[in-house]
Write a protein that binds this DNA or RNA. Structure first.
Lengths: 339, 339
DNA sequence: GTGAAAGCGCTAACAG
DNA sequence: CTGTTAGCGCTTTCAC
C-alpha cells in the first residue's frame, strides 16, 4: 500500500481506506454519512480524509448511482434577448445561489437556434438529473414533452398548460398589473391607455386583461391599446400610435419597463412631459426603468427569488419529495417619479 | 442478447455492439472517430447507433478518460453586481455559444461569499477540466494560484500579473478611452473632466490614464477628475463634485455608462443640458446608455466576443494546443446624441 | 482491422 | 457495525 500512498495524483477512496486501515466500503459509508458506522471508526476515517485531502470522484459516483448531480438550465436561443433582458441574469443568479448549498451543479445551456435537437439529446442523454427551462416571456414550452422523461421546471406559465402537468413558477402578472393601474387611477388619472405585450405570451395577455379588469372595477373603460414586443423601440412606436389617435391620455401602463422607456421618448417628441402630462408606469423593475429620467414607477417582480424557487422545485422533484405543481410569486409596486 | 435489447433503459455501448454484431471495442472506436475501423463496419455500427438512439454515458467515459468535458465559469460573489451588470450576462452568453459547438459543458458557479473554499474544492476536485474566472471590473485574481493545477482563463487583466503567467482576455481599455476623449476634443470641447472608475481596478486605471494621455497629446491638461465606483449614484455624486468646483466644463468622459447616466441627472439638477452645455461620453455600451435620454455616445466593448474568446482559450489550453497568453479585444466608438 | 480483457473510482447488496 | 464481492459503461493496451 505504500506505493499507492506515494502517488501524487488525486487521492482515491481506496487510499483513504488504506490510510485509515478500514475497507473501502466503510470509507464510502462515512463519506455518504451512513448511520451505521461506529463513531470512533468514523473519526479515524474523517482524519484520513482530511489528511489526504480526499474529494470523491464524481464520475465514478455517477456511474454507479445513476445520478449526475447536475441540473441543466436551458435559456432560449435568442442570443440578443438574453443579453438585453436583465431578467435572465437574475433568474440564473437565484438558481445558482440555491444550488450553491446543495450538491448539484448548474449546467448552462443557451440554445443556439437549430441546436435544439442537440439540446434534447443532451438532456435525454443522461447528462443531468433535471432541467430548468426559462421561457418567461415566451411561454414557449416546446420542452413539455421532456417532462415525461426528465424532471423539468419552467420559469413562466406555459402558453397552454395542457394536462396541467407542467411544473412551473411564475409571477402574478395579473395582480401586479392591477396594482399598477390602481396606482394610476388613485393618482387621479382617468384617461388611461396601455402599451401591451405580445398577445401570444402569457405575461402579455395577463397584464392586458388586468388593465381592462381594473378599469372596469372603477367604472372606466378604454380602447386605447397598442401592442409592442417588449423592446424599447416597440414601446416608442406604440406610444406614437396611441398619441396619433388624438384622444386625450393622461396615464399609460406599459407591460414592461423597456417599452415604458420607449414611450418616454415618444411622449417627449410630442412635446409632452412625464409625469405632468402623462403618468407612466411599467412592469419588471429592471435597470431600464430605474435609471431613466424620470425614474420609472413600476411593478417589481422577484426574479432572483424566482430562480431560487425553480431550483428548490427541481431538486425536490429529483429527490422525490412532494412538490407543488405551480408556485406563484407576488409582485410589488415601486413608486418612483413617473406616476 | 435478446434480453438486453428489450431493455427500455438507455442503450449502452454493449447493446450497440450486439445490434451491430461487433465488439464493444469497435463501437467505441467508431464513436470516437478512430481511423482504424473499416468503412463498412463503421457504417453498420453507425446504423446501430442511430437505430438504438445511443448516446455515450458521460460518467463512464470520464471515469476512464480522466476528463470531465466540463468547464466551470466562476462569477464573483457580489450577487448584486451580477444582477446589475449586463456585461456578465453577455460574457456568459459568448462562452455558452462557443461551447455549444464543442463537447464541453458549462458549469456556472456564482461565488457566495464565504463559499470560496467550497469553490476551490470543487475546481480542484476534478469536477472540471478547466475554469473561466470573470473578474472583469475587479481585477481580483485570487484564483491565480489555481492555474498551477488547473487550466484557468481570466476575463479582464489581473491587477498584478506577477509572473505574467496568467491567461486572460481583456478589452483595450486604454485605446478605447482614447477614442472617447478624442471624440470630445474633435467636437470642439476643450474644458474636459472625467469621472474615473476605482483606481484599484484595471479598467479604472487604464481609462483614467488614457484621459490624461489624450489630453496631453493635444496640449491640454485637466485636473477635473473625480472617482466613482461604476454605479449610477456614484456617477451622480462625482458629477456634483465636479460641478461644485466652479470651473467651466464642457465635456465629460465617464469611465462607464452607468456613471455617465448618473452624471446626466447631476447635470440636469444644475440646470445644464446634455450635450448643449456639457457633452458626455461613456464606456461599455450597455443598455443604461442606449436607452437614456439623450442616447449616450459611448465606447462599445465586445462582451460576447470576450466570452467566446475565453472559451476558445480554455479549450485550447485543455487540449494542449498552443494558446496566446493574452488576447486583447478592440473597442468601438458608438456615436449617439450625448456628444 | 478487430476482439478479449482489464480496469477507472465508487456504491450496494450480501455475508459475517 | 464492517468487509467482500460485484459490477456501473466506457476506453484501451495487447494479442490475433
Amino acid at each position: 500500500m505504500a506505493e499507492k500512498l506515494r502517488s501524487g495524483a488525486m487521492p482515491t477512496l481506496e487510499m483513504v481506506a488504506a490510510q485509515a486501515g478500514v475497507s473501502r466500503a466503510t470509507v464510502s459509508r462515512v463519506v455518504n454519512g451512513s448511520p451505521k458506522v461506529s463513531a470512533d471508526v468514523a473519526t479515524i476515517v474523517q482524519a484520513a480524509i482530511e489528511e489526504l485531502n480526499y474529494v470523491p470522484n464524481r464520475a465514478a459516483r455517477s456511474l454507479v448511482s445513476r445520478k449526475t448531480q447536475a441540473i441543466a438550465m436551458v435559456v432560449p436561443e435568442s442570443a440578443a434577448k438574453v443579453f438585453d433582458d436583465p431578467f435572465f441574469a437574475a433568474v440564473v443568479q437565484g438558481v445558482a445561489l440555491y444550488l450553491e448549498d446543495t450538491d448539484y451543479t448548474l449546467n448552462m445551456i443557451i440554445e443556439s437556434g437549430a441546436a435544439s435537437h442537440k439540446t434534447r439529446r443532451y438532456l435525454l442523454g443522461g447528462n443531468v438529473d433535471g432541467a430548468l427551462v426559462v421561457s418567461h416571456h415566451t411561454g414557449d414550452h416546446s420542452y413539455s414533452e421532456l417532462s415525461r422523461t426528465l424532471p423539468v421546471v419552467f420559469g413562466g406559465r406555459p402558453l397552454s398548460d395542457v394536462g396541467g402537468d407542467n411544473y412551473y413558477v411564475d409571477v402574478d402578472n395579473f395582480a401586479g398589473a392591477c396594482t399598477a393601474v390602481e396606482h394610476l387611477i388613485a393618482s387621479g388619472r382617468t384617461k388611461l391607455a396601455t402599451i401591451a405585450g405580445p398577445q401570444d405570451m402569457p405575461p402579455g395577455v395577463d397584464r392586458l386583461s388586468a388593465f381592462h379588469a381594473t378599469l372596469g372595477k372603477h367604472g372606466l373603460t378604454s380602447d386605447l391599446v397598442e401592442v409592442g414586443d417588449f423592446s424599447p423601440p416597440s414601446g416608442a412606436e406604440a406610444m406614437r400610435r396611441l398619441l396619433a389617435r388624438g384622444e386625450p391620455i393622461d396615464g399609460i401602463f406599459a407591460a414592461n419597463d423597456q417599452m415604458a422607456i420607449g414611450a418616454y421618448s415618444a411622449i417627449r417628441e410630442a412635446g409632452l412631459s412625464v409625469p405632468a402630462d402623462i403618468a407612466v408606469v411599467g412592469f419588471d423593475d429592471d435597470n431600464y426603468g430605474s435609471t431613466a429620467t424620470p425614474p420609472l414607477t413600476t411593478v417589481r417582480q422577484p426574479s432572483v427569488e424566482m430562480g431560487r424557487r425553480m431550483a428548490e422545485m427541481i431538486v425536490g422533484l429529483i429527490e422525490n419529495r412532494p412538490v407543488d405543481t405551480v408556485t406563484t410569486l407576488d409582485t410589488e409596486l415601486v413608486i418612483r417619479d413617473s406616476a
